[in-house]
């Protein structure tokens, strides 16, 4: 099993609903967020191009945060989801420094916190909160090992990219372009 997410940059309107849904679903402390929306503007006026991306932890297959964690608090569970065990985390910040996507942050309670792909919902057969709430339905989630899953189908149909693959992280968050 290999969970992955695909975000359609052509459908995303940058409303940030995914961010609020995540904060509500996961009780993210005020002032923090596990996902965010990036707007890239490219070109010269009047030929401008805009790309909108809803970003979060890339649940890398070769995760630098898991590698550098001194206690094993950062770990990978079945399906390739990268998680943090709060009561093993010492809050040293190594994983935060090691993430090229800046996807982690120190929770006010001391441990490091991040996107979990809403594993608690996925286990129940539901989609992650950000995917479920998206008003333009621009996000796809599922198992890459299953050729019929939503995410496998859309990745076969459309061109996609990942963020900084040259960092060697093998990210599992795809952007349809």
């Amino acid at each position: 099993m290999r969970y992955a997410m695909a975000v359609d940059t052509k459908k995303c309107v940058g409303c940030s609903d995914c961010v609020v849904a995540c904060q509500t679903e996961n009780n993210v402390p005020i002032g923090f967020c596990r996902d965010w929306v990036v707007e890239v503007t490219d070109g010269t006026y009047p030929q401008l191009e805009i790309e909108l991306r809803s970003e979060r932890c890339n649940h890398c297959a070769n995760a630098p945060c898991v590698r550098c964690c001194p206690t094993g608090a950062s770990h990978i569970v079945e399906g390739g989801i990268v998680l943090v065990k709060p009561n093993k985390c010492i809050g040293c910040g190594a994983c935060i420094a090691s993430c090229p996507y800046d996807a982690r942050y120190p929770h006010p309670k001391g441990y490091v916190d991040k996107c979990t792909f809403c594993i608690h919902r996925v286990k129940e057969g539901m989609k992650p909160a950000c995917v479920a709430v998206c008003p333009t339905k621009c996000m796809y989630f599922g198992d890459l090992d299953d050729p019929n899953s939503e995410v496998s189908v859309i990745l076969k149909k459309r061109k996609s990219k990942t963020l900084i693959p040259e960092a060697g992280t093998q990210p599992q968050l795809y952007f349809l372009i």
């Binding site: 940030s16 961010v19 002032g31 996902d35 707007e39 890239v40 503007t41 490219d42 942050y105």
Partner: peptide
């Protein structure tokens, strides 16, 4: 031009606007 902005207002302490996790 090439401009990249976080438009959802990410202000994670010690991470934004610039990483400063180690003091």
């Amino acid at each position: 031009m090439n401009e990249e902005l976080i438009i959802s207002g990410r202000e994670n302490l010690m991470v934004d606007p610039q990483l400063h996790i180690w003091h």
